[in-house]
């Protein structure tokens, strides 16, 4: 009403009745929405997630390239240079990590002033830097392989149980309950005793106990989705169960699967480390983060860096995976944020 006074006259042109132009009804309201883009943007809007993603990338890159670029190998034993302290170029000029122990330059003492062991060496004279990254590589490999196996078993089991329901589901759930009734550690130890120790065995041991969680999550999701109207629509069109499972239920469970994957990997890494720590790890001279910590732990009082270096990498790795998982969950499934 207040605007009434200051409205000027309309020009001749402005008074013309033009109506609408039907060709202009191309609506662009929603065309810009992109699900994937939104997820990525939400992901990076979260600082913790972005940092953890960068950390993870750096760790993976180091795990791949650091051993290649290092002048040492992970199994090369050198009795001359045992338990060398850390020596890192540039930083040594600042007076830290300069290869001295109690004021004595150990590198000068051994006459290897041209050598740099970034993380020092262990009691067999092996370069810990190289071993840490080889160990990370193996830990990651075991964890990812184990979790992929998890996903394959868990998703199949969960989808079948959730989709067919009824008696099938009942039997399948009881089976899981029996399986979870047996302590994981016993299954793993029996398996590791029965089979040759090595990466495949450890993977299998981890997967055998890990898939239950995945199958439960997938089953719950399928139970929720299968009464959705698009699944009903597909049924009224005569779709086979296989088609419904693969075309409708699987793609819509993918978010949950990725989230669970992200949380399972650190869990598997940790479990692998734990197995290594109780002496069921990869055979020597191979190294995983777990075996490295186990080795370093023995001389932790004298040479703390031998345990701290692999432990630090393990911590950062696990933290990054967990934070990334958190961020992904927020981005993919905002309703789960409160959980």
């Amino acid at each position: 009403m207040k605007d009434m006074q200051n409205v000027q006259h309309l020009t001749e042109e402005e008074r013309r009745l033009v109506g609408y132009n039907a060709d202009e009804f191309v609506d662009e309201n929603f065309s810009g929405h992109s699900y994937v883009k939104e997820i990525i943007l939400t992901l990076f809007a979260n600082k913790a997630t972005a940092i953890s993603l960068i950390c993870l990338l750096v760790i993976v890159l180091f795990a791949i390239f650091a051993p290649m670029l290092s002048p040492y190998t992970y199994k090369e034993i050198n009795s001359k240079t045992t338990n060398m302290p850390m020596r890192i170029p540039v930083l040594e000029d600042l007076g830290i990590f300069d290869g001295t122990r109690k004021g004595v330059d150990m590198y000068a003492k051994k006459g290897i002033e041209d050598q740099y062991h970034y993380f020092g060496t262990d009691n067999l004279g092996r370069d810990i830097w190289t071993r840490v990254w080889v160990g990370t590589r193996i830990s990651l490999l075991i964890a990812v392989l184990a979790v992929v196996l998890d996903v394959v078993i868990g998703v199949t089991y969960g989808m079948v149980a959730g989709f067919f329901g009824g008696k099938i589901d009942m039997i399948m759930q009881r089976l899981i309950e029996i399986l979870t009734g047996i302590p994981n550690l016993i299954i793993m130890m029996l398996l590791l005793l029965a089979m040759e120790p090595g990466i495949p065995t450890i993977c299998l041991a981890l997967a055998i106990t890990g898939w239950v969680n995945m199958s439960r999550i997938v089953r719950a999701q399928v139970l929720k989705l299968k009464s959705n109207e698009y699944v009903l629509a597909s049924r009224t069109l005569g779709a086979s169960p296989k088609r419904i499972l693969l075309k409708h239920l699987l793609p819509n469970t993918m978010g949950q699967i990725i989230i669970t994957f992200m949380f399972s990997v650190p869990h598997a890494i940790f479990f692998e480390a734990f197995l290594a720590f109780i002496g069921l790890g990869v055979p020597i001279p191979m190294a995983s983060l777990g075996t490295l910590i186990n080795d370093g732990y023995r001389s932790a009082m004298l040479y703390p860096y031998q345990v701290l270096c692999p432990a630090a990498v393990l911590s950062v790795l696990m933290l990054s995976f967990n934070l990334l998982g958190d961020g992904l969950r927020d981005a993919i499934d905002p309703q789960m944020r409160s959980m």
């Binding site: 309309l10 402005e14 008074r15 009745l17 033009v18 609408y20 132009n21």
Partner: peptide, 8 residues
Amino acid sequence: PRNQYALE
């Protein structure tokens, strides 16, 4: 844009 009676 949707108005049949829109003026210039």
